[in-house]
């Protein structure tokens, strides 16, 4: 039986009068692949930032393996990797320099780091461009390198915020396959692509107006119908 790796207890995020995330309770099991969907402005990305500790909740707490962020934020972060629609890369550094820097940030060094860089650049098909500046990369290549950046320290949890946004079908397919390969990693994916979420995720969470309004197993027959009602059909395709 899988353990609860991430537990969110009544978390909320308020910006003045605006409530971005409203009293969300959530459990994610170790190794689970969870999709979070919902209309624009539903609070999906904010929820992901709260779970990944890049935002402080206004209320509630997040526990990772039973440890609260407020107790040990720095050690918990060693287990996290983040992939977003933004690359989080430095355009004026080359691919190896980018990965080496982020490896250093996760206390990696020496041969272990160099081998990890070589392996990830090989997996993402970027080895031949390893010494080229990121500013010369296409959007798809940047996103593949960003995927390598997120995995440089072999994280237990991967937070994915619309990683396919702006990618052509070919580049999306490569990222999808890389994601599917990481079956032992707990993955939380914010996406509008419902069909993709149904096909590869274990669970689908639906958010609306900052609240978690539905929680499905992806095999559940009523997923499409319910999501369409909440998001509107156009938003879900």
């Amino acid at each position: 039986m899988m353990n609860n790796l991430i537990v969110a207890k009544s978390i909320a995020k308020k910006y003045g009068r605006i409530i971005a995330v409203d009293n969300v309770d959530l459990c994610v099991k170790d190794g689970e692949f969870v999709a979070i969907t919902g209309p624009n402005g539903a609070g999906k990305s904010t929820l992901l930032k709260l779970l990944s500790s890049s935002l402080h909740p206004s209320d509630g707490e997040v526990l990772i393996n039973g440890v609260s962020f407020s107790d040990d934020r720095i050690d918990i972060r060693k287990e996290f990797g983040v992939l977003s629609h933004e690359s989080y890369l430095y355009d004026d550094l080359n691919a190896i320099e980018n990965l080496r820097f982020f490896g250093n940030m996760y206390d990696m060094k020496g041969i272990q780091l160099e081998e990890q860089i070589k392996m990830l650049l090989g997996e993402t098909g970027l080895w031949k461009r390893a010494t080229d500046r990121v500013s010369t990369f296409s959007r798809g290549m940047k996103q593949r390198l960003s995927f390598a950046r997120a995995l440089i320290h072999d994280p237990k949890v991967l937070f994915l915020d619309e990683p396919f946004s702006g990618l052509d079908p070919g580049a999306s397919k490569i990222i999808e396959q890389l994601l599917i390969k990481k079956s032992s990693t707990t993955r939380l994916l914010v996406t509008h692509n419902i069909e993709f979420a149904i096909s590869i995720c274990d669970r689908i969470l639906v958010m609306d107006a900052g609240r978690l309004v539905a929680d499905f197993e992806s095999k559940d027959e009523s997923v499409r119908e319910t999501i369409s009602q909440i998001c509107g059909i156009d938003a879900c395709v």
Binding site: S53, S54, R77, V82, E86, Y88, L89, Y90
Partner: peptide, 9 residues
């Protein structure tokens, strides 16, 4: 490219 977000976590 939003690299500060990666640094923050």
């Amino acid at each position: 490219n939003g690299a500060i977000q990666a640094l923050k976590i």
